[in-house]
Write a protein that binds this DNA or RNA. Structure first.
Lengths: 149, 149
DNA sequence: AAACAAAACTTGATTCATTCCAAAAGAGTG
DNA sequence: CACTCTTTTGGAATGAATCAAGTTTTGTTT
């Protein structure tokens, strides 16, 4: 439903453009993709879209709260369109695969710090590090692409 | 105590070199610094150390478990010498300041995912996002350098 | 104490994600 | 339909991090 994306964009006072619709569609169909993949997916529909446009669109959509930017340590930025529910992620140290994990507590910040050092905390981001089922069955990888090395 | 660092290095079968001692000393005195700052701190003592050496040393020390690499979303890599206690961090969205937060639960993984999707999870990393006391008193910043924008 | 092999460091270049810039195109408004 | 502001294009630049070749240093052995 493309018109659905149009509604979303108008709701946050953003102009409706082909690149933006294509990015939203790409993220709906492929959660947790990096920027390069978004560019490739967008160009499958709109071959003339520049990489700069995708960067700009992702920034605009992130600012508007329509998409969420996630960036596990050691990896490039990834984006997802599931927003507003403060869910978390499991990340595979071996292949970088990401899966969603519902927040056990609910709304942000779902955790409270034992000592916040005077910071006013509005969000607790949780990243579960581990090994995905596929990598667990394979031989132990020799060159982990992401995460602490 | 430089000889203390020497003991640490030998304990993990790493050779004792000037660059490594300087990096360990820098991290002891300045927690949560990025690589450029480490380079500057090291060169205050050892002016001839190359940036590549610092990168190599940080990698070696991280692999050996003597230092921990942390990388909040949107920021460059930072390092700290407090290891082994699975503590977490509060990060200021405005200035990037980082403070330690003790883990309420204890050993890793301190949290368990509600649904781990078959991943075998060995660590739960928590980043508390907020505003530090300094930035809270200042005027609301117009250009946050780190974190979700 | 001298010599050797492996590990670590220096120098210089390169990669890659991301950003900056000026000009052209497109979206929404009256 | 014309106007204004926003967005996109195309190309170049930035900056953190990595790679590669050659030299120095460390820890060990004789």
């Amino acid at each position: 439903m493309t018109s659905d994306f149009e509604t979303q964009l108008r709701a946050v006072s953003l102009r409706v453009t082909r690149p933006r619709l294509a990015v939203l569609a790409a993220l709906r169909d492929h959660p947790h993709v990096d920027t390069d993949t978004v560019i490739a997916l967008v160009r499958a529909d709109q071959p003339t879209v520049s990489h700069q446009a995708v960067y700009d669109v992702l920034r605009a959509l992130t600012d508007a709260g329509l998409v969420r930017r996630i960036q596990p340590a050691g990896a490039t930025a990834r984006y997802e369109s599931r927003v507003g529910d403060n869910h978390h992620h499991v990340v595979c140290r071996s292949c970088g695969a990401i899966a969603d994990v519902d927040c056990a507590v609910g709304s942000a910040p779902c955790l409270t710090a034992s000592d916040d050092h005077g910071f006013s905390v509005d969000e607790a981001e949780v990243v579960y590090w581990g090994t995905c089922p596929d990598c667990a069955t394979d031989a132990p990888p020799s060159d982990p692409p992401v995460g602490r090395k």
